[in-house]
Design a protein around this nucleic acid. Sequence first.
DNA 1: CTCTTGACTGAGG
DNA 2: GCCTCAGCCAAGA
Length: 109
Amino acid sequence: MKPETLNFFDKVYDIARLIPYGRVTSYGAIANYLGAKRSARMVGYAMNASEGKEVPAHRVVNRNGLLTGKHHFDGTNLMQQLLENEGVKVVENQVQDFDALFWDPAKEL
DNA sequence: CTCTTGACTGAGG
DNA sequence: GCCTCAGCCAAGA
């Protein structure tokens, strides 16, 4: 299908939904897969608008594995709870074993 | 149309 | 390894 078929946001949601259970990825990885490596901020921006949609935004963190978007969730530790519920260890808003749990759509897909 | 803001990232000191 | 600066692009006021 044409790239124009889906909006940038929709593409982001599509990728986010493909993130395997118990895995995490970075905004940059998604942006890179979409061909907009420099638009990592847009990915986060899209996530902000993902509320109300079935998108595992909690599986998306920044390149450091830091839960930079946890403040956008209802509670203060909801994002962390969701990740830990999937077996992902989180300490101080930071994903443990991030390199091992990292899921790159450009490589895994 | 212009300015500000932001769930980011890479490079430089 | 930590801190700071600049580039990036889209949406809202």
